[in-house]
């Protein structure tokens, strides 16, 4: 009985639904698969109610569905002409203070504001007024901040505090000049995890190392696993031609879509010019380039010679905690079955 008390029922667009008390209208609508547009709402962050895009009509009154709890008997309309008009005006207002440079924006094609402008077919804003112009500050090599594109939704502030536990950024200044930035506009405590980039709905925060490296539609995305620590974070590598230019992570992964500085920004070593590109064999004390045939023949001959003269236990192998399971399996099999020794280990066995 106790449980039943916490259950309420309401109607959304004529459909009845029962939910736990405390559930927001937005969450209830999503259960019914009714889509309500949002900009500041993020499923992994607490509600803000800043952007007003998610307004719905309750008894003729517009309310923000992301912050309003569902109530018993409530009748909600998510897309009446009245609401759609209001919503269009809200998006229009946001765009009135947003640079019109989608043509060169990194987020073009993956921008939530651009999507809404498209949905509501907003070409030239009705509202004209002052625009915020900020001097560019180039304080760090990871996060490109273009605060003129910021819609002050606050997702970045929340993810930094609620998820990352850092609080490196917050709202600063007042009124029209309100801006999100680190204290004194200097990155004092930032861990450069890039979580803020992940949640930013617009092109206000983008990955600096990826700038100008490829448009969204030219990018191949491949799901794989991070090569750094043992967390095993799921990565989506974004490749343009033969270069990995950016990293993201699926929201429903074991790492919940969050990454650290190494996973997010630390993968350009793949395309480093320092990569070894050819086998090397030491001749007269110097390592010189060789063909695979030469390297294989030389290596196999020397190993055979040592095995035959000194026995298999004169040979050992150190494997790698960086390599795959399959490679490690083959490596120990090589030492045991092909060479004939159990001299095989790896540095991180402890």
């Amino acid at each position: 009985m106790e449980k039943l008390k916490n259950i309420i029922s309401l109607t959304i667009d004529g459909q009845r639904i029962t939910v736990q008390s405390g559930t927001t209208i937005l969450a209830a609508a999503r259960k019914l698969d009714i889509s309500i547009p949002v900009l500041c709402h993020h499923p992994k962050l607490t509600a803000t109610g800043a952007c007003r895009v998610c307004i719905v009509e309750v008894n003729g009154i517009p309310v923000t569905s992301c912050t309003t709890a569902a109530e018993e008997g409530m009748e909600v309309i998510t897309a009446s002409p009245y609401i759609e008009n209001l919503r269009r005006d809200i998006i229009d207002l946001i765009l009135s203070d947003h640079p019109y440079d989608c043509m060169v924006c990194e987020r073009a094609g993956s921008c939530e504001l651009q999507e809404l402008a498209y949905k509501y077919q907003i070409r030239t804003p009705v509202f004209r007024g002052e625009r915020r112009i900020y001097p560019k500050r180039d304080g760090n090599p990871f996060i490109e901040r273009d605060m003129e594109k910021c819609i002050l939704c606050g997702r970045c502030v929340k993810v930094c505090d609620e998820v990352q536990g850092v609080g490196a950024i917050d709202y600063a200044y007042k009124g029209f000049q309100t801006k999100i930035c680190p204290p004194f506009e200097r990155d004092l405590s930032c861990e450069f995890c890039g979580q803020c980039i992940t949640v930013c709905p617009t092109g206000a925060l983008v990955s600096k190392p990826s700038l100008g490296k490829g448009r969204q539609q030219d990018i191949r995305k491949v799901a794989t696993i991070c090569p750094y620590c043992g967390c095993g974070c799921n990565l989506t590598l974004h490749a343009h031609k033969n270069e990995v230019i950016r990293t993201s992570s699926p929201k429903d992964s074991i790492n919940e879509g969050w990454l650290c500085v190494k996973g997010k920004f630390g993968l350009s070593f793949i395309n480093s010019p320092d990569r070894l590109k050819t086998p090397l064999v030491r001749k007269n004390g110097v390592l010189v380039e060789a063909s695979w045939e030469e390297a294989f023949t030389y290596t196999a001959d020397r190993l055979k010679q040592i095995r035959d003269t000194r026995g298999p236990d004169a040979i050992g192998g150190l494997s790698s905690a960086r390599c795959t399971n399959e490679e490690n399996y083959l490596f120990q099999k090589f030492l045991r079955a092909a060479v004939g020794t159990n001299n095989v280990d790896h540095c991180a066995r402890y």
Binding site: I225, C226, P227, Y228, C229, G230, G232, S319, S320, A321, R322, C323, T324, N325, N328, Y329, F331, Q332, N342, N343, V344, D345, H346, A348, R349
Partner: peptide, 17 residues
Amino acid sequence: LRGQNNVQGATDMGCLP
């Protein structure tokens, strides 16, 4: 907590003497 991407795997795969 394992420190490298595949310490667990390298150990599981018997890269041990």
